[in-house]
Each structure stands twice: as C-alpha cells, then as structure tokens.
Amino acid sequence: MTKQRAKILVIIPCFNEEASIKQLVGDIQNVKKQYDLPIDILVVNDCSKDNTLEVVKSLDCLCLDLPVNLGIGGGMQSGYKYAFRNGYEYAVQMDGDGQHPAIELPKLLKEALLEQSDVIIGSRFLEGKGFQSSFFRRLGINYFKWLNRILIGRTIHDSTSGFRVFNHKTLEIVNQYYPDEYPEPEAIVLFGLRNLKMKEIPVEMCERQGGVSSIHSLRAVYYMLKVTLGIIFVYIRIKGKWKT
C-alpha cells in the first residue's frame, strides 16, 4: 500500500447514530474520491447503546471506541488528541447525525488550505440557507454572539456550530484542554483568547437525520448556565494567566 499520507482527519463523534452514520461516512468517502482529498475518517463511538459500533466497524474508516461515555467534549477531544499525536495537519469536526452535509466539506477545507486562518467554522447563518434551527436555539446563539463580542471582541455568528476545521496550531491547544460538555461556544472564546484566527464560511445544514439532540427543554437552562460559566472561567483563567 503506497498511498499519500493523509493530512486531514475528519472526526465524527457518535452517540446512538446507527441510522445515519453509514450514509455520512459513505458521503465523505465519495467527496474524498471526487476531490482527491487526503482524508482519513475517524468515528468516535461514545458508548452508544445501539449498534453504532458494529455499523462503524463494517465501514471504511478509523474508529475510536471510548470505554465510558464522556459526552461530546470528551469524545471530540479524544479525536483531536488522536489527530495531534498522529501528525495530522488538519482536523475536521462533523456531527454524526447528518446535520453537516459532506458536500460542504471541500468548501471548509479549501479555506483551511489557504492557511490564512487557524479555525474555520461552518456557519448556517451567514447566507441564511438550509436548516436554520428553532427560535429558542437562535435566541441562545445570539446570546453567545453577544458574549463573544464582549469577551474577545469578535463576532462569530454561529458559535454553536459543530462543523469546524482546526489546523495544527489549534490542535496543539485542544490537545491540552477542551471543554467537556457542550464545548463549542466555550472553545470559541478559548481560541479568541489564544489569538487564533477564526473564519466563518457559509454552509447549508440539514435537520438531523437520526438520533436525539443532546439539548432539549429543561436541559436548555442547564446548557446556558453551564456554557456561560465555562466561558467566564476560561476567560478569567487565560486573561489572569492562572496556572491550572
């Protein structure tokens, strides 16, 4: 086997995604062939209770099988660590539920390969096409936008988007620390404080194909509280240069 060493790792965190994962991995493989991209696919199985693991093992991709359920943040960090240790130059995060169409992947990667930004975020609000999320979710997203503007002086329109590309510099940071639960908005503040260049690219997202959202009803209150606290403390920790 003499193939060019993959430079890009696509990480797909999965929790009970047996319904959608096969299709997603297939789509990414197609995009890889079509655009001749040096991609490896890594599925992180976060202790799914359904057949996700069996389905994933039958697919043409790498697989990390976490021994205990760590949640999206801990799961993603295992993927980032894997990318960092194995010398990948870029890591892409894509949700396992089919919200992020593989067809948008080249757009993000193209931007990343220009090497002008450290973090590329696929944003569903820049052009307002595709699935736009519910009213309350957008309310929350606007709140984070406002919080980001105050804390790091930058406007990120879709800070909850889990469709992202990190370069090696970013991987080095998330290899050390990545928030556990609901990591996306906090990570943005972390990157801002570390002076990473972030760029948003308009993408179209779909409604989830299968699985259950990790955020609903009462959890939403907890979510907002947890993320706000996380953001405030990551800000204090880095601004105050406190040793952790």
Partner: peptide, 13 residues
C-alpha cells in the same frame, strides 16, 4: 477518568 478513557480508546484502536 477522561484522560484514561482516551488512552484506552487509543490502545483499543
């Protein structure tokens, strides 16, 4: 535990 789980997952892989 999080760090250990990561290591276990890497070893399994």
């Amino acid at each position: 535990i999080k760090d250990l789980s990561h290591e276990v997952a890497f070893l399994k892989e």
